[in-house]
Write a protein that binds this DNA or RNA. Sequence first.
DNA 1: CTAATAATGGATAAATTTATCCATTATTTA
DNA 2: TAAATAATGGATAAATTTATCCATTATTAG
Lengths: 144, 144
Amino acid sequence: MFSKACEYGIRASIFIAEQSLLDCKVSLKDVADAIESPAAYTSKILQKLSKSKLINSDKGPTGGFSMDKTQLEQVKLSTIVYAIDGEAIYNGCGLGLKNCNASKPCPVHDQFKVIREELKKMLESTLVKTLAVDLEKGLTFLKR
Amino acid sequence: MFSKACEYGIRASIFIAEQSLLDCKVSLKDVADAIESPAAYTSKILQKLSKSKLINSDKGPTGGFSMDKTQLEQVKLSTIVYAIDGEAIYNGCGLGLKNCNASKPCPVHDQFKVIREELKKMLESTLVKTLAVDLEKGLTFLKR
DNA sequence: CTAATAATGGATAAATTTATCCATTATTTA
DNA sequence: TAAATAATGGATAAATTTATCCATTATTAG
């Protein structure tokens, strides 16, 4: 459904959000340990999220990754997915056709439309912060 | 959402079904032309569908690919997807966790469950034959 | 100012997916 | 039986995604 990079990105941002709610900055290593991902690869993904202003990053000692109040209020799953995987999941044709649309539909156009809209609605209505709260409560998990 | 191989597989099987409804066998080249896919790669996918008994293939002159009555009645989108991409799309965790389940859920377990079940229901209730009928009527398209 | 820390960015490498090539096998027709 | 046809299967190659390595930059504390 999502690329591995996107999966890592979502898990990482939920962890960073959780720690930010506790007023903690986290290092790359903290993130990689928390979500069991390859550190160097995760680094690239966090750079992307950082450049898209979805998370903050600071260099040097006391540095690390974090999310501020505004980011915690605004960043949704859809924001992360869009930053990493782009819009393909929203607009792409289920069968890979370039010009699939209502007036020249692929054979599963209508069927997929329903699913995609459902998915979109879900991603756009889910704040990373909300997921972080459940994680902090121990209701959900980021590894295995 | 699906692999490229699976997209080709679905499009190919809809085309083969359409032609079979018109009592026509089609060659590899016919298929590749109809769905605008690389022929040799498509060949591998058709072999897989053929070995899974979702389509028939015959060698030699007058040979080609086809679907018989039984196959036309039984093959659904879910059948094709399962044969090519396996069950990951049904059972896999949205965030890539190995042991994500109701008692140890990932942060988006419940949200994804709804979407996946919706998708599953759709794939399992859609006969390739039905899609082929619409294609034959000129209501849908397999290229571009 | 120096040493230590942590993210950054560029270059590579490994793994996987997608795609191609070609010799072989099976089948049909003449 | 020979020639032509069409799928098959194995080997390889190209492209993309995932992953690693390391030197550099920015920042902080002493």
